[in-house]
Amino acid sequence: MTAAPAPQRRQDLRADCGSCFALCCTAFGFSRSVDFAEDKPAGAPCRHLGSEFSCTVHAGLRSRGFRGCTVFDCFGAGQAVSQRLFSGISWRERPDLQQRMFAAFKVMKQLHEMLWYLLEAQARTYDPDAAHEARDLASVITALTRGGLPELLTVDMDALHSDVRAVLVDTSEEVRASYFAENGRLDKGLGPGADLVGKNLRARRLCGADLRGACLIAADLRESDLTAVDLLGADLRDARLEGADLSAALYVTQPQINAARGSGKTRLPTGISAPEHWHSR
C-alpha cells in the first residue's frame, strides 16, 4: 500500500474548532491548578461545554482561571477525528462511540504534532538525504492518520516517537552547527533539559543553543536573539518574549507561544501567531 502524501503546509495542521466535537473539552482531564479553576476527569465533558460543542465561557477563559484552555492546540487532530475518522457523527449522537473517539483523538493529536515538526525538519535541513528521510517518515505518519480506527489505535507510539526524535535531533545538530562558535560564549548551564526558571537571559545572542526540553518558566528572554535555538518541548510558560527574535528558532509550536508573554515586537516563526492576550496586556 502506497503511503498517502504528507501535508505540504503547516496550515493543514491548524485546528478548526467548528468542525470538531469539542474533543479537547472532553477527552482530556485536568486538575485544579493555576491553569485550571476546577477539576475535570478525562472522558467527561467540561461543565462549560454548550449544546453545539462551543465553550460558553470562551471570551473569559483566562479571567475565570482557565488559562490552560487558551494554551492548548490539537494541531488539527480534532476535525480529523470528528469529520474524517467518524464521518461527522458526534459522541452525543452515538454515546457508544465516545470512548473510541476520545482514544483516537489522543493518538491523532500526537501524530499531527509529529507532522508539524517533520515539516519543519524538511524545510530546515541542508542535506537532501535528511530531507528525504523526514519526508518519508511524514508520509508514513500521514497514512496512519488517514487509515482506519483499528490501525490508528494499535500504532506503536513509542517506536514512532523514537524515529521522529532521531530525525529532529539530527536536523537540529546540523542547523545549529553554524552557530557553535557562539556557544562558547553561552552559560554552561544552557543545554537540553536545563532548569532555567526565572533565568535572566535578556538581550542575549543565544544563536545555536540547544534548549530542547529546557524549563524556561518565567525566564526573561526580552530582546534576545533565538535564531537556530532548539526549543523542542521547552516549557515557555510565562517566559518574557517581548522584543525577542524567534523567527528562525527551531521546533516552536503554537501552544508554547500561547503560554508565554510577548508583544507586537516579538518576532515569531512563519505559521505561528501572536495570541490574543498579548495584545490585551
Rank of each mutant, 00 (worst) to 15 (best):
3 A>D: 04
14 R>E: 04
16 D>H: 12
17 C>N: 03
26 T>M: 13
30 F>G: 11
34 V>P: 01
38 E>C: 08
39 D>E: 10
47 R>K: 11
53 F>Q: 04
57 V>W: 05
63 S>F: 07
63 S>T: 09
66 F>V: 03
71 V>L: 08
71 V>Q: 07
77 A>N: 02
78 G>L: 03
84 R>K: 15
87 S>P: 09
90 S>G: 05
92 R>V: 00
94 R>N: 03
98 Q>T: 09
99 Q>S: 13
101 M>E: 01
102 F>T: 02
106 K>P: 03
106 K>S: 00
113 E>Q: 14
117 Y>A: 01
120 E>C: 13
123 A>F: 12
125 T>N: 10
126 Y>S: 11
128 P>D: 05
130 A>Y: 02
130 A>I: 01
131 A>F: 10
132 H>E: 14
135 R>P: 01
137 L>C: 03
138 A>Q: 07
138 A>C: 06
140 V>E: 08
144 L>E: 10
147 G>K: 09
157 M>L: 15
158 D>C: 10
158 D>W: 12
161 H>P: 05
163 D>Q: 15
164 V>N: 06
165 R>E: 01
167 V>M: 04
173 E>H: 13
175 V>C: 05
177 A>I: 07
184 G>Q: 14
192 P>K: 02
192 P>G: 02
195 D>W: 14
197 V>C: 11
199 K>P: 00
202 R>L: 09
206 L>N: 02
210 D>P: 15
211 L>V: 07
212 R>Y: 11
219 A>S: 04
219 A>W: 01
224 S>G: 00
227 T>C: 08
229 V>Q: 14
238 D>K: 13
240 R>M: 11
240 R>I: 07
241 L>V: 04
246 L>T: 02
246 L>Y: 02
248 A>Q: 12
249 A>K: 08
249 A>L: 09
255 P>C: 08
256 Q>Y: 00
257 I>F: 13
258 N>I: 06
267 R>L: 15
269 P>R: 12
276 E>A: 15
277 H>T: 02
280 S>Q: 15
280 S>M: 12
280 S>H: 14
